[in-house]
Amino acid sequence: MSTGTVADMVDDLRQQIDSGALKVDEKLPSTRVLMETYGLSNNAVYRGVALLKAQGYTYSRQGAGVFVRDRRAMIGGARRIKGITQPGESIHWRYSVRTQAPDWVAEYLGEGECVERARTVRRGELILQASRSWVHIDVAAVVPEIDEPRPVDPESTWQAVYAERSGVPVRVVSVSVGSRLATEDDREALSLGEGACSVTLMWNVYAADERVIGVGEAVYPSDQRVELKIS
């Protein structure tokens, strides 16, 4: 295949990752191979790989290359609303409490009380993800189970249950990814060791009838520890 465009290279690699042709933690072809395969310059290949990283499809190991990231971080839309666990994974609930919306959450839900829910997703003893969601207090009138630290339905999510009971579809209106140094809560939830380390994040915004009813933050262990030098 030789299209000569970065977009086609990125689309093709994303399809291979989504289909499983390129598996989680598998190394991407070298820059030279990608240049020859897609008819691109080395700078164009670098741009394409950087875009895949920004979209959460790949990650780098210093001196080793670029590898396929676990795609659970990019599950979206209806699949995320229906539930995100995969075979062999289990959800462990941490808490569900009424709290004042943090400033950044209040920008979406409005100021005042909301329901904060926290959980981890595991495969055996391995913690794959720690997530928190902030749900508009009005949702509790339709789905009172959100006040309890457990699934609102064994096979579904609060978003799907709300949509079923209210008759109003819930959709993901925004997905963004980023990274930060691990906080104390991140460290506890993900069982991270001592020392500074970074985590990968994904934020989701859920809406019903053009009104935001929930915000979610998923945190994933990054593959590389970082050292802080203070001068």
Rank of each mutant, 00 (worst) to 15 (best):
D70P: 02
W134C: 05
L40D: 04
K23E: 14
R94Q: 12
Y206M: 06
E116M: 15
R94P: 00
L192D: 00
E89I: 01
V212N: 04
P29Y: 10
G65N: 10
L109D: 04
S30T: 14
M202H: 09
L52S: 09
M1H: 10
G88D: 06
E107Q: 08
D103P: 00
A182I: 06
A160E: 14
S166F: 09
K23M: 13
M202C: 11
M202F: 12
A141M: 08
R117M: 06
V226N: 04
S90W: 05
A64T: 04
A130R: 09
P151E: 02
V168I: 15
A130E: 03
A189Q: 04
A207T: 05
N43L: 11
D70H: 03
D138C: 04
P144F: 06
E210V: 10
P154T: 06
Q129Y: 03
V173H: 01
V115L: 07
R150H: 04
C197P: 00
V45S: 06
A207R: 04
V68W: 08
V115R: 10
L13N: 05
V10S: 07
Y38D: 01
D223Q: 14
A189C: 05
I84R: 03
P151C: 03
R117W: 04
L28P: 14
E113R: 07
Y59T: 02
R165K: 15
E89G: 02
A207C: 00
G195A: 07
R171M: 09
R171G: 05
M35H: 06
D12L: 14
L128H: 00
K27R: 15
A163E: 12
S166Y: 09
A196E: 07
Q100P: 01
V49D: 10
G65Q: 15
V205M: 13
D18P: 00
P154I: 03
V219F: 11
V66W: 02
T5C: 11
R117Y: 02
E36T: 01
R119A: 03
W203P: 00
V33I: 14
Y38H: 11
G178L: 08
Q16N: 10
N204W: 06
S60Q: 06
E155Y: 15
I137E: 13
V45I: 07
G83T: 04
D8E: 15
Y108V: 01
I84C: 07
A140D: 15
A163Q: 08
D209L: 09
M35P: 02
S176A: 13
S19E: 06
R211I: 13
S131E: 15
V49M: 11
A208G: 08
E164D: 08
D8R: 14
I137N: 11
W104A: 14
P29F: 10
V45H: 05
E111I: 08
E148L: 14
P144Y: 15
G65C: 07
V6K: 15
M9V: 05
D147R: 11
V115F: 13
P87A: 03
Q15K: 11
P144E: 11
E125W: 02
G83R: 07
I230R: 08
R47C: 00
Y206H: 02
R98Q: 06
W203E: 12
L128P: 01
Y57W: 09
G48C: 07
N43E: 13
E113W: 06
E116L: 09
Q100I: 15
